[in-house]
Design a protein around this nucleic acid. Structure first.
Lengths: 212, 212
DNA sequence: AAAATTAATGAACAGTGTTCATTTTCTTGT
DNA sequence: ACAAGAAAATGAACACTGTTCATTAATTTT
């Protein structure tokens, strides 16, 4: 019976509409100031209706969280064409920074906010597929670098975590405004993104020195 | 006239009482769930009274922010006795991690939340003394290391920013729960703080390789 | 057409930061 | 000691927030 299927489809559509409205409000105002009532108003339904499709606000947040990860993996996946693993590692870093700067609120959603992680923790299968996928992407590249003589005396996992941390630190200190308030940076004429890039290039230099 | 002085003193006392109440509620429940009404209840005044001493919630946050920085500098200042600059740099990293883990909410207040930084930005003198002081502590140590032959081909500012970023990334990925949800870490029997320490030690190894 | 099921909502609850007219308290001058 | 004036404290309100639930509206099935 195609009728009940249409109903189901409509139900799915409405869920998508909610998510789309949430995503739009989120990207233009940030999550802090996106309320259930805002979302409801945007899709022209009552606030209570949203709770028929999402258990609570965190469930919406988590759906956007997964979308964001797909976007990040897109930024990184383009680079699998780069054959030289060390060059690929560098390009991944640059892509990571580009992602963080072009999608600041999404970046915060993925790697700063604790709510989506709490949702992962409360799931029966406590797996964080999206995070694992991205981290493995990094670890595999590091491992390939090691096969070619880079970082040979360092442990893959530890080094990968250090690299991730450095990238994460660079991006968050930039976007949270902390970097911009260090007077040495503020009085240096350089714009913030140049400072960030310069620091990243210095980090690459550091990695280059860790051969054989 | 000692009487009006006592009044002033009492006024200062009440401001301190507010801050103390805020600090206590903050450390036991986190900032998210500390409301003006909570603070007011704790000091047995009406909520409106608080606004006679603090312009808004962000001003309270900023006072705690400065307190937190004094605490951090205490963690780091103890190490000025370490004569060897590279050893001191290592010890500073360990102290930084200890500070972040022992004062997780305070750490978030200092380096993750954007509100205190916005307050800095809105001040007439846009200086961020606390941040500058801490960053200079790091930069001076890096510079001393360079004088002794470490990191000679790297720029002091860039390297300092990279080191800060790495430490910040390590600490925030740990405390936000993101590290703990990477399955490679979750399935490894090691507790999270050991993973963090191992990664930090690996980072020190990296720095060690950047001599001459 | 009536009954049963599903979808949507209005209204309420308990909470938030913040403002302001009003009241209470304290200080000063007579 | 008492009235006048200044300072401090407050109650009540405003415009929000996430969330729940009994009630109403729409749709499907009998």
């Amino acid at each position: 019976m195609g009728i009940s299927e249409r109903k189901l489809r409509h139900k799915a559509d409405l869920k998508k509409e909610i998510l789309t409205a949430a995503r739009e409000l989120f990207t233009e105002k940030g999550w802090e100031s996106t309320s259930i009532r805002n979302i409801a108003e945007k899709i022209e339904y009552s606030p209570a209706t949203i709770y028929l499709y999402y258990k609570d606000k965190n469930e919406i947040i988590f759906d956007l969280h997964r979308e964001g990860f797909r976007l990040l993996v897109n930024y990184l996946d383009v680079l699998k064409g780069v054959k030289n693993p060390f060059e690929r590692l560098q390009a991944m870093g640059r892509a990571y920074i580009r992602f963080a700067l072009e999608n600041q609120d999404t970046y915060k959603l993925l790697f700063v906010m604790e709510e989506p992680m709490q949702h992962v923790a409360s799931c029966a299968t406590m797996d964080w597929d999206e995070g694992d996928k991205a981290f493995n992407l990094l670890m595999n590249t590091v491992q390939e670098c090691q096969k070619q003589g880079h970082f040979t005396n360092l442990q893959t996992i530890n080094l990968s975590f250090v690299i991730w941390s450095t990238m994460h630190g660079l991006c968050t200190l930039r976007t949270s405004g902390h970097l911009g308030h260090v007077s040495l940076v503020r009085n240096s004429n350089h714009n913030l993104d140049d400072v960030l890039t310069a620091a990243y290039e210095e980090f690459v230099k550091m990695l280059e020195q860790l051969n054989n």
